[in-house]
């Protein structure tokens, strides 16, 4: 951002699937002030804006472990199952995911279809 010079490193995260964008303050696995908590992937993290406690964090998203697409944490865009997968990769390799996840996604697809039609 050309104008945001005064701001302390305000960077913007943008989901490459749904376009959701928001500024993030940290990228990595150990956001500040999280103590015993460790993230299992490198994440784009911001302060949780809906929590009055300043020290609570919110994971916005991360990169897909297969295609490196930058995706948000929303269930329409990505899925975490030991690693982060963007929805495109999930669909490509759906058969490799446990059946619980498969049926869950199928159900979701149906309901969203129903909502559209």
């Amino acid at each position: 951002m050309e104008h945001s010079s005064s701001e302390t490193s305000e960077k913007t995260f943008t989901c490459q699937l749904c376009g959701l964008s928001s500024s993030y303050s940290y990228y990595g696995q150990k956001p500040p002030n999280t103590r015993a908590i460790v993230l299992l992937e490198e994440c784009f993290v911001t302060k949780d804006p809906f929590n009055p406690d300043r020290e609570k964090f919110l994971v916005l998203g991360s990169t897909c472990s297969l295609c490196s697409l930058c995706v948000c944490a929303g269930s329409d865009c990505s899925l975490f199952y030991t690693k982060r997968f963007c929805m495109q990769c999930v669909n490509k390799h759906l058969d490799q995911f446990p059946h619980q996840i498969q049926s869950e996604l199928a159900k979701k697809k149906q309901s969203s279809k129903a909502a559209v039609s």
């Binding site: 908590i37 994440c43 030991t82 059946h99």
Partner: peptide, 22 residues
């Protein structure tokens, strides 16, 4: 192990990207 490296046995725990280091 399959090529995605996912555990075959499903566990909801695997869907959480956080760990509490204790």
């Amino acid at each position: 192990k399959v090529d995605l490296g996912l555990p075959k046995e499903y566990d909801a725990r695997y869907r959480i990207n956080v760990s509490v280091c204790t």
